[in-house]
Computed example of a mutant assay.
Amino acid sequence: MGVILLIIVGAAAGFIATRVMGVEANIVITIAVGIAGVFIGGFLLRFIVNMLGATAGFVAGVLGAILLVWLYQKYRGRS
């Protein structure tokens, strides 16, 4: 995945994750959470990503970002 594609997918995944979790975050945090979520989701769901392709990568990114938002809320409190 190229850096530009990673930023685009991460931004989209972070946006969806913050909206699903009801968190208001600035654009930098949203993109950072999304990119980290793409890495975490890709790592955790590597087998599915290899089987289903880019769509699974996006879903894994959203799930990873949701996990990070949940952890953030649990340990830092609601924004």
Rank of each mutant, 00 (worst) to 15 (best):
G41D: 07
M1P: 05
M51H: 14
R19N: 12
I48A: 13
Y75C: 00
L6P: 01
L67W: 14
L5S: 14
G10A: 06
E24P: 01
E24Y: 09
M51W: 11
G14H: 09
G57P: 07
L63K: 00
L44W: 05
V38I: 10
I7E: 02
S79G: 11
A65Q: 03
K74Y: 04
I27C: 04
F43G: 11
I16R: 06
G57Q: 08
G10V: 03
I16H: 10
G37R: 04
W70Y: 14
S79H: 11
I66Y: 01
L45A: 08
M51Y: 12
A65D: 05
L68M: 10
V59A: 10
G34Y: 10
I40G: 03
I27K: 09
N26M: 02
T55G: 15
R46H: 12
G61K: 01
G34M: 10
R78W: 10
R46S: 15
I31L: 12
F47G: 14
Q73I: 13
I16M: 13
G22E: 04
F15M: 09
G53D: 12
V23P: 04
T30N: 07
I66S: 01
F47H: 13
G77L: 03
G34D: 10
G77D: 03
G64R: 02
G22T: 06
A54E: 11
Y72T: 10
I40D: 02
G64H: 02
I8H: 02
F47P: 05
G42W: 06
G34R: 06
I48P: 00
G77C: 04
I29R: 15
G61F: 01
I31K: 00
I29T: 10
G57W: 06
N50T: 10
K74L: 11
V3S: 09
G22V: 04
G2R: 14
T55W: 13
V3I: 15
L45I: 02
L68G: 07
L44K: 07
V33L: 15
G57K: 05
V38T: 11
G77F: 05
K74E: 05
V49W: 07
Y72E: 08
E24R: 13
M1G: 15
G42Q: 08
M51P: 03
R78Q: 07
A17Q: 11
M1H: 10
L63N: 00
V38D: 05
G2E: 12
G2V: 05
V59P: 01
M21Q: 14
V23G: 03
N26Q: 03
G41W: 07
A36W: 08
A13M: 06
A11E: 01
G61L: 01
G34T: 10
V28T: 13
K74V: 02
R76P: 00
F15S: 12
G37L: 12
A60H: 02
I40Q: 01
L68Y: 03
